[in-house]
């Protein structure tokens, strides 16, 4: 196997809350190969966004803190970098695309300035040249009439166009890794398909890796090479996408698959929801945090916490039971 571009080992990120400290991310390890698209799926509170923010060291402190673990990007441990060090990585070698393009763009600055800014900051390219590059980037994300649109402000763009601007900004410094956190959740379905197709296409062209964070199993099926499923701050299963859908091994993954209505499914088929409520991170049960909702629970699950174990080629699960 080629050397991974990103290697996260035993990452734990805690937040101080009124009810004590909670581990939003609890001992998470995963890798991303060059050019690969890894999807991180999970429901709200599963820790998928905090994982992404931790990689870029964007955890607000206080209340949050990366407590332990290492994040090796191209051999450098990002956890150990000082502020100027991590700033040189953000938006440069690793770019982030957020869910809400309107709140990620500065409403008072023109789009052109915001797309040109990372080029100026990271490359030291003079503004005039950076603007030229921005024009080209705006064209590349297929915003028509790029040169004149550069002088517009974010509010003059539609939701889908704003997300294209975010992609242009992300591409500005030719990053090796793009992290997209629910990039299309706020968009209509036809626009969602346009944006994700574009994202996939540009990563293919540039050879950069993509971490796609989503709750949508359909989006995962369409765009991901490999998938990590998170629950209660931990990765419970990781596998190549086809493998995961064909042979899910963890009861939570199985439960998720049975919960989603499928567009191509026979209507009227009864959905098999996962019983119970999502876990409360402040009062997780001892043992496996999925235990209380699990159909395959065995005594061991109540006392011991399962670690990820290999079950097939490149396929691992954190579960004691045989499903």
């Amino acid at each position: 196997m080629t050397r991974p571009l990103l290697e996260v080992n035993n990452l734990t990120t805690r937040f101080r809350t009124e009810r004590g400290t909670v581990a939003a991310v609890d001992g998470v390890s995963f890798q991303v190969a060059p050019g690969e698209t890894l999807a991180i799926v999970g429901e709200s509170g599963s820790g998928k966004s905090v994982t992404a923010l931790s990689v870029l060291r964007l955890i607000p402190n206080p209340p949050g803190r990366i407590e332990s673990g290492e994040i090796l990007f191209d051999g450098v441990n990002l956890v150990k970098l000082d502020d100027p060090g991590i700033r040189a990585v953000r938006g440069n070698k690793i770019a982030m695309i957020f869910q809400e393009p309107m709140s990620s763009l500065n409403p008072a600055l023109t789009v052109g300035l915001q797309v040109a800014e990372p080029i100026n900051v990271h490359r030291g390219t003079p503004w005039a040249k950076a603007y030229e590059a921005a024009t080209e980037l705006i064209g590349r994300v297929r915003i028509a009439d790029a040169a004149s649109r550069l002088n517009s402000y974010p509010h003059q763009y539609s939701g889908g166009m704003r997300q294209r601007v975010m992609i242009a900004m992300a591409l500005a410094c030719a990053p090796r890794l793009i992290i997209a956190d629910e990039p299309t959740t706020a968009l209509d379905v036809t626009v969602q398909a346009q944006i994700l197709d574009l994202l996939k296409e540009v990563t293919r062209e540039t050879g950069s890796s993509l971490i796609l964070i989503t709750h949508d199993l359909g989006v995962v099926a369409r765009y991901a090479d490999r998938v990590a499923v998170m629950y209660g701050g931990r990765i419970v299963e990781v596998a190549p996408a086809r493998d995961l859908y064909a042979r899910p091994q963890h009861p939570y993954t199985l439960g998720l698959m049975a919960s989603v209505p499928r567009l191509d499914g026979g209507g009227g088929r009864r959905l098999m929801p996962i019983e119970g409520q999502p876990p409360d991170l402040a009062s997780l049960p001892p043992g496996c945090s999925f235990g209380p909702r699990c159909r395959s629970i065995i005594p061991q699950c109540r006392t011991e916490r399962p670690e990820l174990i290999q079950v097939a080629d490149r396929h691992a699960k954190a579960c004691f039971a045989n499903v």
Binding site: V189, T190, Q192, Q194, A221, Y245, L263
Partner: peptide, 27 residues
């Protein structure tokens, strides 16, 4: 038709076979 094509199905095997006709523009 476009709306149906835009919605991904939660199955990579099905997705690989599905015709993809993404329409351009927004509402």
């Amino acid at each position: 038709e476009a709306l149906m094509a835009a919605v991904p199905v939660a199955d990579p095997e099905v997705e690989a076979r599905r015709p993809r006709a993404v329409i351009s523009g927004e509402v």
